[in-house]
Simulated assay, not measured.
Amino acid sequence: MSTDGVNMDRRRLLLGTTAALGAVGVAAVAVPFVKSWNPSAKAKAAGASVVADISQLEPGQRAVFEWRGKPVWVVRRTPEMIANLKAVEGDLSDPNSDVEDQQPAYAKNATRSIKPEILVLTGICTHLGCSPLFRPEVAAADLGADWKGGFFCPCHGSRFDLAGRVFSGVPAPTNLVVPPHMYESDKVIIIGEEKA
């Protein structure tokens, strides 16, 4: 075979250009395919922790944050609210928080919290998933003279005290859930993380 009249430099240029364009085409197809293996921003956010600034939260108030698509309540309890927790223990279904998956070990105490004055709860009723109302007033006319403040689920009438413990004789089977959390400082809580 004769190579007379064939421009070898031109042939090398065409082969190199074709190979380079082919490599670019393969990369253009491979990059989106490989990126599809990474979790989406929505999936990353679903498990991400939430920073809760409680510096403006006054005693007796509740703030609502969202973690994993659920409302998380942070309540700054007054000394009176904390004292009233003992008064309702005889009316509760699980006063000692014996159902272990309802709170981390560090919240298995009378106040169900790390610091007695700060309560952190997932705001979802354990009956059918409604969101209970924050009813901190004592002896509310519609809840009875023995009401010491807490959470009332308007869907089916479940009641919880100001530690999220469920009252006996209501549809909710267990206490409200205490999510994992930790203090970054006195004014900032990280919801979804625990100290190692």
Results as ranks from 00 to 15, higher is better:
1 M>D: 07
1 M>L: 10
2 S>G: 15
2 S>N: 14
4 D>E: 13
4 D>L: 10
6 V>L: 12
7 N>P: 03
11 R>Q: 11
13 L>T: 09
14 L>N: 02
19 A>N: 00
21 L>V: 02
21 L>R: 01
21 L>W: 04
22 G>F: 07
25 G>R: 07
25 G>N: 10
25 G>S: 15
29 V>C: 12
30 A>V: 12
30 A>F: 12
31 V>H: 12
33 F>E: 13
33 F>N: 12
37 W>H: 06
37 W>E: 02
42 K>D: 07
44 K>D: 11
47 G>K: 13
49 S>K: 15
50 V>F: 13
50 V>W: 13
51 V>K: 15
55 S>M: 12
55 S>T: 15
57 L>F: 14
60 G>Y: 11
67 W>S: 02
69 G>D: 08
70 K>R: 13
71 P>K: 09
72 V>A: 03
74 V>A: 03
74 V>C: 04
75 V>I: 15
76 R>F: 02
77 R>K: 10
78 T>C: 06
79 P>Y: 07
82 I>H: 08
83 A>W: 01
83 A>V: 04
84 N>P: 02
84 N>C: 04
86 K>D: 11
90 G>W: 07
91 D>Y: 01
92 L>N: 05
94 D>S: 04
94 D>C: 05
94 D>K: 02
95 P>V: 03
96 N>C: 00
96 N>W: 00
99 V>P: 00
100 E>C: 00
104 P>M: 01
105 A>H: 00
106 Y>C: 00
107 A>V: 01
107 A>G: 07
110 A>N: 03
111 T>P: 06
113 S>C: 12
114 I>A: 08
114 I>N: 00
115 K>C: 09
116 P>Y: 05
117 E>Q: 14
118 I>M: 09
118 I>N: 04
119 L>H: 09
119 L>V: 11
119 L>P: 09
120 V>L: 13
122 T>Q: 14
123 G>V: 10
123 G>P: 03
124 I>V: 15
124 I>S: 06
124 I>R: 10
125 C>I: 08
126 T>S: 15
127 H>F: 13
129 G>K: 08
132 P>L: 08
132 P>R: 11
133 L>A: 13
135 R>G: 01
136 P>Q: 10
139 A>Y: 08
140 A>N: 09
142 D>K: 08
143 L>A: 06
144 G>Q: 09
145 A>S: 11
146 D>V: 07
147 W>V: 04
147 W>C: 03
148 K>L: 04
150 G>P: 04
156 H>R: 02
159 R>D: 00
160 F>G: 05
161 D>G: 05
162 L>G: 06
162 L>V: 01
164 G>L: 01
165 R>K: 14
166 V>I: 08
167 F>Y: 15
173 P>H: 09
174 T>Y: 11
174 T>E: 08
175 N>T: 14
175 N>F: 14
181 H>E: 09
182 M>A: 13
183 Y>F: 15
184 E>R: 15
184 E>Y: 14
186 D>F: 10
186 D>M: 09
186 D>G: 12
188 V>S: 08
191 I>P: 04
191 I>L: 10
192 G>T: 08
